[in-house]
């Protein structure tokens, strides 16, 4: 099974690397990921499928959380910043 790499990049700030997971995997993963995210924290979700930039924020907003930003970080790679406060 492929791994989802999680690292801590700052205090209460994590980076979840889902590059290599095609759509709809990020969309299906995000619901559980935001449940697991410690309270008062943010995470940068790295994805490399275009649809995730639309699908993931939709699910996050549905769950009542905030999407800080969605930015292109490299050719075909995006960073979606999500906070639970």
């Amino acid at each position: 099974m492929k791994e989802i790499k999680v690292v801590k990049i700052d205090d209460s700030y994590y980076q979840v690397d889902m590059r290599g997971w095609m759509c709809p995997y990020p969309k299906y993963a995000i619901e559980k990921l935001i449940e697991k995210l410690p309270s008062q924290s943010c995470m940068d979700l790295l994805v490399d499928c275009p649809s995730a930039t639309k699908d993931v924020p939709e699910v996050v907003k549905e769950k009542g959380l905030r999407v800080e930003k969605v930015i292109l970080i490299n050719d075909g790679e995006w960073c979606i910043t999500i906070c639970n406060y």
Partner: peptide
């Protein structure tokens, strides 16, 4: 597909995440 990705998410523990530098954009 959902079962596959759920398994991968299940084993994640944010509290055990190692410290690392963030990926920088090009």
């Amino acid at each position: 597909l959902k079962t596959q990705v759920s398994k991968a998410v299940e084993i994640i523990d944010f509290n055990k995440a190692q410290k690392a530098e963030p990926v920088l954009s090009k």
